[in-house]
Design a protein around this nucleic acid. Structure first.
Length: 600
RNA sequence: GGGGGCGUAGCUCAAUUGGUUAGAGCGCUGCCCUGUCACGGCAGAGGUUACGGGUUCGAGCCCCGCCGCUCCCGCCA
């Protein structure tokens, strides 16, 4: 019995036809003298009817013995449902199939959890869902996510093909470049003591492809980073990776805006507005306290540095005297914050090294705060006018070095938004997408512990041309030609115009990053050499494909858009990877294990 | 590496201050039921309270340890 239609296909116009459906028993309603079975496949479901007056007894009995998730094929005539028994909840609800033939393709044991009821299934413990991932994926919600992922992947390929890009695959077995994220290593059987590394991104290869004259490269690239995981980070993940020659930053913005416009149209049928806003890193920090701002709501940071420069309140004036700033945030409507909530926010501040968190609750026409008594009339007036303080507001302060003060309030801003959302005081339209570019990042950041500069993005990022002279004189002022694409507070991707001159790249490696020349040569020698033979100016970007799909699917966790994701500890609960291997396998790899004993 | 949350029947959850035989809904098993679609009705089975210790007359509940899942910080060039 081969199916003639899928389970979301039959409509009144098929009435009278003899059809065959195949799929899973979604639900069975046995009325004793009459059995209804909904057959489900990936497209939908269709009601079939078993009527004993029209069927041999054994066929009817076989239908009665089926249980949920058995795989069956059923043939019969499509007919209109009796008056008043249509089911408007499903697309096939006007018809049913009066079964005359039934084949049990495979019996199903009782399932560890129900997949037919979205209400229940969506609440099932994720551990169980991961262990029985094949059942989890049967749920229409999960199938929808995977289907959307597939559609977006295809749309991406079509888009880049139209734009003249070539899809090029790059090696998974690469070599270790320990500057970036921790890498997965693959021991080499052929030469004891040597290893491959899995790529944390195809960065070097795609730049080499530019030297190779490919000009426009893209790839849906699998990347590997052996770092601790989050809801939006997995050990292995997929990037939409691309690189172009002979371009400037603006060319890339336009290209990616075009891609995202296409993707949103294909995936959600939405027209998003381009071009996106541009925000410098400094402005993003000043206004939102984050380099990946969620701009769907206001609650912006306000600078109060000058107003408190000479304040009698030493916590503020002292911070300013020490070269820092005073920043404030008005969390509208949060004056009723509980002690616990204030404490949570204080903990955030402390985790950034602050001593505490100053705040004012505006309640009953009064400013309730332990610090207000130190403020002068002028200072109060400045707060009043700059923060537009009203009854019910909660004002929060950070006084510290600029970056730290911004980051403290940036974190607290998000927390306040969560609290206000939970209270129904802040409503964000789930169909709202605030895209923006964050640009002009500092090229370098300083690592106090190791007392050296490191690349904010990666060491191949080109400095803004006019800032190149500052590289050796005032490194912190050098802006990189780096850009991040951000949507709703998620970092969707980032990239840069790259260094294509050998001498500039060498300066960065050796003088700025203090990588000893022999090590730079061992790690990046092939790149430096490639740059000697005619490297075009080039740049690119990589978008987190899993995050992109998660945003489109409206889920917080990328595990919901990955068929077989890993747990926070890096385990695959279905296959039970990672797992020990045979001693023979280790011997072949010239490996010996030294497994640390547990304490106690 | 650090901090928070969770773990009770197949699933989702409950169990008063530490106190009788650990309950409910769904699912499962059996019987009944010819227009259901969350079918309905009756009956029944199902528990090492993740695991290991401890405190106590008595522990699902308190303490210590451990395992797993999850969220966050660090980390993620």
């Amino acid at each position: 019995m081969k199916r003639t239609h899928h389970c979301n296909e039959l409509r009144p116009e098929h009435i009278g036809q003899t059809v065959t459906l195949a799929g899973w028993v979604h639900s069975r309603r046995d009325l004793g003298g009459l059995i209804f079975i909904d057959i489900r496949d990936r497209e939908g479901r269709t009601q079939t009817v078993f009527d004993p007056s029209a069927l041999p007894k054994d066929l009817f009995d076989r239908a009665a013995s089926l249980r949920s998730e058995c795989v069956i094929a059923a043939a019969g005539k499509v007919r209109r449902r009796p008056e008043g028994t249509n089911n408007p909840k499903i697309a096939t609800g006007e018809i049913e199939v009066a079964v005359t033939e039934l084949e049990l393709l495979n019996y199903a044991d009782v399932l560890p959890f129900a997949v037919d009821d979205p209400e229940i299934a969506s609440k099932v413990n994720e551990e169980l869902r991961l262990k029985y991932r094949y059942l989890d994926i049967r749920r229409p919600e999960m199938l929808r996510n995977l289907r959307l992922r597939s559609k977006v992947a295809t749309a991406t390929r079509v888009f880049f093909d139209e734009q003249g890009f070539m899809e090029v695959e790059t090696p998974i077995l690469f070599k270790s470049t320990p500057e970036g994220a921790r890498e997965f290593l693959v021991p080499n059987r052929r030469e004891p003591g040597t290893v491959y590394a899995l790529p944390q991104s195809p960065q070097q290869f795609k730049q080499i492809l530019m030297v190779a004259g490919v000009e426009k490269y893209y790839q849906l690239a699998r990347c590997f980073r052996d770092e601790d995981q989050r809801a939006d980070r997995q050990l292995e993940f997929t990037q939409i990776d691309l690189e172009m020659s002979f371009i400037e930053r603006e060319d890339l913005y336009t290209l990616i805006e075009g891609l995202l416009k296409r993707v949103w149209k294909v995936a959600l049928g939405m027209d998003i507005e381009t071009p996106f806003k541009r925000l410098s890193f400094v402005e993003a920090m000043n206004r939102y306290g984050m380099d990946k701002p969620d701009a769907r709501f206001e609650m912006e940071l306000v600078d109060m540095t000058e107003d408190f420069r000479n304040s009698a309140f030493k916590v503020f004036s002292g911070a300013v005297q020490a070269g820092g700033v005073v920043k404030a945030l008005n969390a509208r409507g949060l004056a009723g914050a509980t002690q616990g909530q204030i404490e949570t926010m204080t903990d955030y501040a402390k985790s950034f090294g602050a001593k505490g968190l100053a705040y004012i609750k505006v309640e009953g026409g009064e400013w309730k705060s332990p610090i207000v008594k130190f403020f002068s009339e002028t200072e109060r007036a400045a707060l009043q006018s700059k923060l537009k303080i009203e009854e019910g507001d909660l004002i929060l302060f950070a006084a510290d070095q600029w970056l730290n003060a911004c980051e403290i309030l940036g974190r607290i801003r998000l927390y306040c938004a969560d609290v206000l959302s939970a209270q129904g005081k802040l409503n964000i339209d789930p169909r709202r997408f605030d895209f923006l570019w964050v640009v002009d990042f500092p090229l370098l950041s300083f690592d106090k512990e190791q007392n050296r500069w490191y690349s904010s993005h990666h060491p191949f990022t080109a400095p803004v041309a006019e800032d190149i002279p500052l590289l050796t004189t005032d490194p912190k002022k050098v802006r990189g030609q780096h850009y991040d694409i951000v949507v709703n507070g998620w970092e969707l991707g980032g990239g840069s115009i790259r260094i294509h001159q050998r001498d500039v790249q060498k300066t960065i490696f050796e003088q700025i990053l203090q990588i000893p020349p022999d090590i730079a040569q061992a790690r990046f020698g092939y790149m430096l050499e490639a740059f000697r033979y005619g490297a075009p100016p080039h740049g690119g970007i990589a978008l987190g494909f899993d995050r992109l799909i998660a945003i489109l699917c409206g889920t917080q966790s990328i595990r919901d858009v990955i068929a077989f994701p890993k747990t926070a500890k890096g385990a695959d609960l279905m296959t039970e990877a990672p797992a020990p291997v045979e001693p023979k396998q280790l011997r072949e790899l010239h490996l010996e294990l030294r497994i640390p004993r547990k304490e106690g």
